[in-house]
Design a protein around this nucleic acid. Sequence first.
DNA 1: GTTGCTGCAAAGTGTTTGCACCCTG
DNA 2: CAGGGTGCAAACACTTTGCAGCAAC
Lengths: 141, 141
Amino acid sequence: MEKELQVLEDYIAQNNLKITRQRRAVLNAFAKCEEHVSAEELYRIVAETEPRIGLATIYRTLALLTQSGLASELDFGDGQKRYEHKFMHSHHDHMICTECGKIIEFSHPIIEKLQEEVAKRNGFAITSHKLDIFGVCGDCR
Amino acid sequence: MEKELQVLEDYIAQNNLKITRQRRAVLNAFAKCEEHVSAEELYRIVAETEPRIGLATIYRTLALLTQSGLASELDFGDGQKRYEHKFMHSHHDHMICTECGKIIEFSHPIIEKLQEEVAKRNGFAITSHKLDIFGVCGDCR
DNA sequence: GTTGCTGCAAAGTGTTTGCACCCTG
DNA sequence: CAGGGTGCAAACACTTTGCAGCAAC
């Protein structure tokens, strides 16, 4: 968390931006909150300590976090974006339970390697990828 | 295309629904149009031969096609759903060029198998999955 | 004291829905 | 001729933006 604040402050310093109470509050909430938050969820959390904050500020700050490399956007196709920690949280993919919404993270180096192979075979340079598996988790079966 | 109309008519017959000029027009356009159409795109195509059609009808018919198993919904995270042929078009994944928007389809049985493995290891029963690779295609490099 | 930031409300975007009329079966 | 289908417009859900006042540097 100290490191994250540092990353954000560096980014802010390098771009002639300002550190504000609200930005700190959002970062704080984001840092300690569960993975895969939506803007709305984060808004409710931040509002507990910062009741006058507007939803727009959450969106703007999340954009900032994404640009600074602290967060990454996720889209599980349910009509709203979600955000997860990127800082010190290495790449992984997701298994989403369609019953209870639980999300299991996993990573599989061999799958990644095979993707690289397919891409190369097609003259395609990968910048990112996402693999989402939908199904029913152990608890819901 | 004849077969697709048949599938749709069967589905319609089994569900007390009706075949209309508009539905035929949408299916027609969908059948001959390129992969990964958005509702808006399909609307413009259908409107050429059926100028009085409403966008809502496109959405409703696409839902129908999805339910009947002729189409499947895609979401590349750009804020709009896309649809592709499902009938006689086996499963595959997508490589999306972020420069020109081109989409390369591929399928990789070993990747699929590995996914099954990870799922099983987590007590997770897969119903579907999607793997999207983003990057730059050969033409754009 | 500049210049960027905030809250608010309004505008946007893609999609869905309510309703009166129309058409298929 | 009954019940589903259509077009239209309004409603929706999520996100972005314009603006006047506010606060960081």
